[in-house]
Design a protein around this nucleic acid. Structure first.
Lengths: 218, 218
DNA sequence: CCGGCGCAGACTGTATACAATCGAACTCTG
DNA sequence: CAGAGTTCGATTGTATACAGTCTGCGCCGG
């Protein structure tokens, strides 16, 4: 595995778990030293994250963790709604029994991570759970676009998960989805996803309004 | 402007106009020498294009112009249909008179480029024409996703434009769209876009089937 | 006292140099 | 003669070194 791939993974995790906070500058030399590599692979990883939108690049100034505005967050969720509906419509009917079992297992993993308050594991397991359904559509580009949109909002989802009530709610919602998925009930699965999203977007906009204390991404 | 930005622009143009053909390897040193820079900014531009999907990266092997398969092409057009419909629904009703004039002007530019058989100009003007409508939705992320999808298929659109009949057809289709846009007729604009897309996708799949002669992207 | 100017420091951007990896042609062997 | 091993060339990946740009602070003048 190349150094830039390691850096990409490391940086993505740090952003997604909130170790690097929105608006914060990512100084190349610091990251390089922490991981024992030179600045070159760090730059290339940052480049990738920038083109995905997770990081914002300002020439001659540096790389900053992207800070979502509320309108941007709403747009992300609107696009997710459209594209996830498409993915579920194509994917749920063609799920095999093995797929369903995998999804059930992933739901368990979400629960354990939630119980242990392991945010990194929770974020990952949650993604895996949902993308097991999305990927079933067999539309790699659609999956990829969705991953980008999830990346963009994961920075804030870690906030959402930090509250115990939200973690419990997610557990219940996932269980309901699993039931619908078991019966290949596309309509219900979509409806549950819509509600799931709806709740987190309202919670998050409220949270963002409460805490406008970061300074703007320069 | 930094060197990597110049390289990004240059490489993107070369891929989109077909100067670099699908499947072909992009050798860093060659590109660097051609443009009088070192390999570093070239690498960073390639990195970005790779994360957008225009270029495929194989560690320790190199960067290759992505070759679309027919299923992939169909997926791109399906996603474009969904997202462009969304953009037009939001954008067409709120177009100002100035916007409409801009669009009309862009349609003219497409025609002139077509008349002069200037493929690079044609590709650019065509994009500008359509994105003038899409961008009107005021959804920057949606525009961005659409640009990615366009990038992915532009490699093949240059093929489409090389045929005179297609160029004329596009001129007529754009004129019809312009009329619909002038009247803020969302439904007709969407229908025309659907037909527009439908024709190019059928033409392109046929063309791809005729010419499967490239060697596989390794 | 306040606003513009210049300088120092930090950080980014790029070039050059070196190390590692891959593929293909060639050789050697059964 | 076929096939596995091997060496060589080309190309990529990474480190180091240097150049350029921006920011913030202090100084000077009004």
């Amino acid at each position: 595995m190349t150094a830039q791939e390691r850096m990409l993974e490391a940086l993505r995790t740090e952003v997604l778990t909130g170790a690097l906070r929105p608006g914060e500058q990512v100084v190349q030399e610091v990251v390089a030293e922490q991981h024992g590599v030179s600045r070159v692979p760090v730059r290339e990883a940052l480049q990738t994250l920038a083109s995905e939108g997770l990081i914002t690049h300002v020439p001659h100034r540096g790389y900053f963790v992207t800070r979502l505005s509320i309108p941007d967050l709403l747009e992300v969720y609107r696009l997710r709604t459209i594209l996830e509906t498409e993915a579920l419509t194509a994917g749920i009917p063609v799920l095999t029994d093995a797929d369903v079992n995998t999804i059930a297992e992933l739901a368990d993993r979400v629960d354990s991570a939630a119980a242990e308050r392991d945010m990194a594991a929770l974020t990952h397991a949650n993604r895996d759970f949902h993308f097991a359904m999305f990927d079933a559509a067999g539309m790699p580009r659609l999956s990829r676009l969705l991953r980008q949109l999830w990346d963009a909002s994961d920075v804030y989802r870690s906030l959402y998960f930090q509250q115990a009530g939200n973690r419990e709610r997610v557990g219940r919602e996932h269980a309901a989805m699993l039931d619908a998925v078991r019966e290949h009930d596309v309509e219900t699965t979509i409806r549950l996803h819509d509600e799931h999203r709806q709740h987190s977007v309202s919670w998050l906009t409220a949270a963002l309004r409460r805490e406008p204390a970061h300074r703007r991404t320069p």
